[in-house]
Amino acid sequence: MDAFFVYGFLQRALFAGIFVAVSCALLGVFLILRRDSMIGHGLAHITFAGVALGLFLKIVPLGVALVIAVAAALGIMKLKEKAGLYGDTAIAIFSSMGLAVGIVLATLAQSFNVDLFGYLFGDILAIETSEVWLSIALAAVVVFIVILHYHRFMYMTFDREAAKVSGIKVGRLDVLITVLTAVTVVLGMKVVGILLVSALVVIPAAAGLQLASNFKQAIILSSLIAVISVLFGLFLAYYFDFPASGTIVILSFLIFSFFFILKRFRRIH
């Protein structure tokens, strides 16, 4: 454990990882209950185009990815609402386009290299100080907004019509959740990479939902599971020389499986 106190890069990774994990888990709970768990997956692929564009234009890939992801998330939402496309169809179309554009741009930029792989598979152990602060700040904003609208988000997820009649502006809050999801996906990308970020959004929340008997529990359990996955994932990755992203996701899956089986077992007995 000493290394975690000595090496700056490990501390930075831990610090950013914990913040990002919590914001992923918080949103994950709402997304799963809104039947929208694939949105993270779709946005991650679109983020790939953003990163490739950033590398192509030689401007901060994280920033470009953020803008592209938010725009795409709103686009998906509008398509779903206005054009009568099924939600998962809109996601499928946008995410494949993102990947396609990303491949073309990355090739043009001749940037199929370590940089790009870092974004694809995660490079939290190589995270820079500026990125740590950006991640923490954004994750803190996400957490703050979720706490601010906690009851409203819960209400509109549970019973949309009654929520509307209680005066909640559900349309506006839909946009807010969508934007927060896009931001969270981009943040998660730094931790576990584009290919695995949706796992960080969905799996800890799904695990928490297995055992929770009320909403508060679901939120707290999911966040804890996400933090534990990231902490122990990084720890194992460092000591056994595993890739951090894969280790974190496998760990969260093991926790999910354990809770899943536990729940079935409890129900039988």
């Binding site: 997820t157 549970f158 019973d159 929770a212 009320n214």
Partner: peptide, 9 residues
């Protein structure tokens, strides 16, 4: 309109 598995007390 209600999800029977929704985790709310």
């Amino acid at each position: 309109h209600i999800d029977p598995l929704f985790p709310a007390s």
